[in-house]
Amino acid sequence: MSLDSSQLSTAHSGKTDLVCYPTSHHILFWVNTVSYILPPIMTTNGNDRTTQWKTTIIVSTSLQNHDTSRMLLAQHHRIRFSDAVKSGSIVFPQSGIAFLIINPQELPENLEEAGLFDKIKKFVTVHRNSFLLLQAPFYGKKELDIMSVIQHRFLGSNLRVLPVRNNTEIVKGMLTIAKATSKPHVDSMRDRMSLARAHIIESSSVWEMLRDIKLG
């Protein structure tokens, strides 16, 4: 049994999700709760192209002296510092996504009094595709509790929470996601996901059963 890309998009509309690993350039996606991994986007000679990709990035002035900003500048991205974006945020306008960096170790016990939820809510309201980067060198009880509370508080929203350990993971994760969602790479990613889903459907025992029932 085979389906073309348009049929696959219709058959799995709203049932496919995509996440990038911050520590690598692999793409993880789900089809009906089953996870699959796509390899990194490669050049024709097999090299990873993420480090060669350049884009425009709007960075909050609160991060002007942050190591993340220095690392992005060192990779020759076009950086614009702005007071107009939320404090602690980094926006990729060409990809239509934004990241908010939060250090859970710097937060008090009472998250409501710290204004964290209001800050995240305003961030999610402004940016349709938003990611919260929780930065901590290790995840103990406090860090895991904060991540759990945020996930439950914003369940069903467009916010995705990603734990990261250091600035290197922040930069690598942001660039991997931003590249995968920018033109023309997003078109290539859709084609690769469509091919992967076609292979999954063709090798699925459920689809085989449905085909046999229909033929019968």
Rank of each mutant, 00 (worst) to 15 (best):
F123P: 09
F123V: 04
F123D: 07
F123R: 07
V124D: 02
V124R: 03
V124G: 01
V124P: 01
V124M: 02
T125V: 11
T125I: 12
T125M: 11
T125H: 08
V126D: 06
V126G: 01
V126I: 14
H127S: 07
H127T: 00
H127Y: 15
R128G: 04
R128A: 14
R128S: 14
R128P: 05
N129W: 08
N129K: 15
N129L: 09
S130E: 11
S130N: 13
S130P: 10
F131A: 08
F131N: 08
F131M: 07
F131I: 15
L132W: 13
L132N: 08
L132M: 10
L132D: 08
L132I: 08
L132P: 04
L132T: 04
L132S: 04
L133F: 15
L133V: 09
L133Q: 12
L133A: 05
L134I: 10
L134P: 07
L134K: 13
Q135D: 04
Q135G: 08
A136W: 11
A136S: 15
P137E: 03
P137L: 05
P137M: 03
F138S: 09
F138N: 00
F138C: 01
F138D: 02
F138P: 00
F138R: 03
Y139W: 08
Y139L: 00
Y139E: 02
G140D: 00
G140I: 01
G140M: 06
K141I: 13
K141V: 14
K141W: 05
K141Y: 13
K142I: 02
K142S: 05
E143Q: 05
E143V: 07
E143H: 10
L144H: 10
L144T: 11
L144V: 11
D145Q: 09
D145M: 08
I146K: 04
I146W: 02
I146C: 04
M147C: 14
M147Y: 04
M147H: 03
S148Y: 07
S148F: 08
S148P: 08
V149R: 13
V149H: 04
I150S: 01
Q151A: 07
Q151K: 12
H152E: 15
H152K: 15
H152P: 00
F154N: 04
F154C: 03
L155V: 10
L155S: 12
L155C: 09
L155A: 15
L155I: 06
G156Y: 01
S157V: 10
N158W: 08
N158M: 13
N158F: 11
L159M: 07
L159R: 09
R160K: 13
R160P: 00
R160Q: 10
R160D: 03
R160V: 11
R160L: 05
V161K: 02
V161H: 00
V161R: 02
L162Q: 14
L162M: 10
L162F: 12
